[in-house]
Simulated scan of single mutants.
Amino acid sequence: MNTNNVPNQYDALLGEISTQILQSRYRAARLVNRELLLLYFAVGKRLSEKIALEKWGAKIVEQLSADLQKGLPGLRGFSRRNLFNMKAFADEYAELEPVFRHEADTQYDADQLVQTPSALIDALPMNLFLSLGFSHHTLLIDRCKDLTERVFYLQKAVANQWTHDMLDWQIKARLYHTQGHMPNNFAQTMPDVIRETALQAFKDEYLLDFINVEADDERVLEKGIVQNIREFILKMGTGFSFVGNQYRLLVDGDEFFVDLLFFNRQLQCLIAVELKRGEFKPEYLGQLNFYVNVLNDQVRLPHENPSIGILLCREKKNAIVEYAFQGFSTPMGVATYQLSPDLPEHLRNILPDPESLRKLLD
């Protein structure tokens, strides 16, 4: 026996078995999730019928929840609130009843779903729909009334394995409305093979709600991002890796520093991010263009694509940005950022405005 090949053979076997275990767990989780969706739909439909027929109110639903949990100790997922969520789920997707009925009687096979004429069935990718968790569906029903927007988030959530909290954040960050809409010069500066990927990699606006103070200069903003770099990378999108902040470039004896430097695996290129606390100014692109050129010449590896520059500022006027792009041959984009969301309407009349608060403190 050739013992030299044993480590390689063992590693191959270990990798093969590990993959099979993970795939089996994933299939099992999908099947469990499918069964739960079927159950919740059936319960929600029955509850909806009874409420409509018997004019039941919230107290009956609350009693039903208590009796279910009393009769089935350890039962989870049947709180009063969740029973109403099941009703909303069944009401929202009433047109899918033939699909759910078909699924309840057959083994799961997304390609063999019953073909029932329905605009809703045609619009929803059913294989993805049945693999998304119930709490995700509840969130989408509550927050996304437009079906096209809902399907967008459904597909993203499944593809990226978003948790409920991450899906919630992406909706708050308006990903549907901002992804692919960032003003840029990619059409003039990028090859066709990666342009669409680049467009989808960036958003028009980034919600930096993990920064709790108003950034009065770029360094404060940069510090807040670096201290929460994991959150920032997760919310940047897919494939981003952090290289460093205040990344040093040396040109003819002079030092220059890129605020934030990333690498994106999908694009296979460096991403230079410059932070500006105020409104966009055309001269900012000149500085960013310089950084991107130096990165391409001194840092980029031979197999990597040309670097991209992203300017992140508080405000911008798109017409000014578009004019500012003219004449540059490096790929760049301009996005805005938003810090902690504005106060809810019901609190604005209770808390003093910043000027009044400052006078009180003085």
Rank of each mutant, 00 (worst) to 15 (best):
N289Q: 10
R81Q: 11
Q23S: 03
V321T: 07
N305R: 08
K145W: 14
L96P: 01
K276M: 05
P341V: 15
F84Q: 10
E255A: 08
T163Y: 00
L221S: 00
F152H: 01
Y26V: 01
N305P: 07
L64D: 02
W169I: 05
L139M: 06
D362I: 00
K59Q: 11
L339T: 01
L288Q: 12
G253A: 05
E35S: 12
M126I: 02
E345F: 14
L260V: 05
R265H: 15
N2A: 06
I233K: 09
S131W: 00
N82F: 07
D362W: 00
E322Q: 15
V292S: 06
G57V: 11
R348P: 08
P331R: 09
A319H: 14
F41Y: 12
A29Y: 13
R265F: 14
A159C: 01
P73Q: 07
L360Y: 01
C144I: 12
Y206H: 02
E355T: 07
A58V: 15
H164D: 02
T238A: 10
S131E: 00
N4S: 15
L96E: 00
S65K: 08
K45F: 05
Q115D: 13
D342H: 12
G333N: 10
D216N: 04
Y108N: 04
R27V: 01
D168T: 03
A90V: 02
V151H: 01
Q23F: 02
V6C: 06
G278R: 09
K235H: 15
T3G: 02
L96C: 01
T330A: 13
N160K: 08
F89A: 08
P191N: 04
V334W: 07
Q188V: 03
N264D: 06
S356G: 05
S135P: 04
A104C: 05
Q69S: 07
M190K: 00
M126C: 04
E97Y: 06
S340F: 11
H136C: 02
L207Y: 10
Y26T: 03
A119V: 07
E149C: 06
Q63L: 12
K145D: 15
E92Q: 15
T330S: 14
N127L: 01
T116L: 09
N293V: 07
P73L: 07
G74R: 09
L357P: 00
I141C: 06
N184K: 07
N264L: 06
D254C: 10
H303C: 07
P344M: 10
D216C: 02
T336W: 08
E205A: 12
L38M: 11
R101T: 03
G180F: 13
Q9F: 12
S79L: 09
V114F: 03
V273H: 03
S340W: 11
A272E: 11
P331E: 06
P352G: 03
C269E: 03
M236K: 04
D192G: 03
I60S: 08
P302G: 09
E304C: 13
D111A: 12
H181Q: 15
N160C: 04
G278L: 08
A272Y: 14
F152I: 00
F152R: 00
V158F: 00
L360I: 00
V226I: 12
D342G: 10
A12F: 08
A272W: 09
